[in-house]
């Protein structure tokens, strides 16, 4: 990669992270808002990880919370049962999720499963893990016993975890930008557009799809612990079908393959959700999800570009300006 590319990959991520760090100060360390920011950052990271398999490679994956749940519960239980630090646990979670994705993806792609059958297999994966985890975990909610400090990545207040999540988000943003500007990104997009034509120009479709799937799953496995801590609890319901669909909604409404679009969609939907919950939560609990589902339908019918149609124009302007400074 040449220097200008390094800048376009790292700079947006750093900018987001830097702006992000000011938020706790802006809200006066109000824990409600910091937690909200933390949850938004985690959802944005999950949706941007989905963007790799869904947005670039064009596979409608509905299993995100299979990997979030697996990695997260593994890291959490290693901590609570064996006092293993999540610094290690999160990497183990990433590894186990990656292994699961490989085990599922290898035969699926080997036999050319795509389109609706891929979507179904991934939806089925969540159901299988959901039911299997009832057998192992029982039908209970687990609350994480209170431990504190950087060793456990758990704190009395939410700021530190939030800063840590910002680093993860910055990494996921850079990874997305790197992919979109590298050979892998071109190849994944070609696969998304037409697998047969992609193969005919020499693209190993199976290899690249598997690479996208495993990358996506390992990021989610890593983030799992952060997700569970930010929710304060985990159970068999962490393997959630509806949540996995929600991630795909964010990815599509944001615009397939658009980093700025998916990022904005994750934040906007989270804010709308909180707003509606605050006003109508007691009366109409599912309203925000109903609206998001409608939004998905509208984006599907009207403009498959999603939010990215707006955000891309803006980011392009900014990029051109930055490139002018450096040239």
């Amino acid at each position: 990669m040449n220097p200008r590319n390094v800048i376009t990959v790292i700079l947006p991520a750093l900018t987001v992270a830097l702006i992000g760090t000011t938020i706790p100060f802006l809200v006066g360390f109000n824990q409600y808002y910091v937690l909200l920011a933390l949850q938004s950052v985690i959802m944005a990271s999950i949706a941007l990880a989905w963007n790799i398999i869904g947005g670039y490679a064009g596979q409608l994956d509905l299993a995100s919370f299979a990997y979030v749940g697996l990695g997260g519960i593994l890291a959490t239980m290693l901590m609570t049962e064996y006092n293993v630090t999540p610094w290690l646990g999160m990497f183990l979670g990433a590894g186990v999720s990656a292994a699961l994705a490989f085990t599922i993806g290898f035969p699926l792609f080997r036999f050319g499963i795509k389109g609706v059958w891929y979507a179904l297999s991934t939806a089925a994966l969540v159901v299988i893990l959901h039911e299997a985890s009832i057998m192992f975990l029982g039908p209970f909610d687990y609350y994480i016993p209170f431990v504190e400090g950087w060793y456990y990545l758990r704190f009395r207040t939410w700021e530190n975890l939030y800063y840590f999540s910002l680093v993860v988000l910055a990494f996921v943003i850079s990874l997305n930008l790197y992919i979109s500007r590298s050979k892998i990104g071109y190849y994944l997009k070609a696969i998304r557009e037409d697998e047969v034509a992609a193969e005919a120009v020499g693209i190993d479709v199976r290899k690249y799809k598997l690479l996208a799937l495993v990358t996506y799953a390992s990021i989610l496995g890593f983030i799992g612990y952060l997700y569970i801590v930010s929710q304060r609890t985990f159970s068999y319901n962490t393997f959630s079908g509806p949540q996995s669909v929600y991630v795909a909604i964010v990815g599509i409404v944001g615009g397939l393959g658009s980093v700025s679009g998916v990022f904005s969609a994750a934040l906007i939907l989270k804010i709308v959700e909180e707003y509606l919950r605050g006003f109508l939560g007691g009366v109409l609990p599912g309203l925000h999800l109903l609206l998001f589902g409608s939004l998905l339908i509208i984006v599907g019918i009207l403009r498959p570009g999603g939010l990215s149609s707006l955000t891309d124009a803006l980011t392009k302007k900014i990029r051109v300006r930055i490139q002018r400074w450096y040239s």
């Binding site: 509905l62 999800l289 498959p304």
Partner: peptide, 15 residues
């Protein structure tokens, strides 16, 4: 494309 078709019906189900 199939992804958009599936997504739209996923949206209906979600609603």
């Amino acid at each position: 494309e199939p992804l958009i078709q599936i997504a739209v019906t996923v949206g209906i189900g979600y609603v």
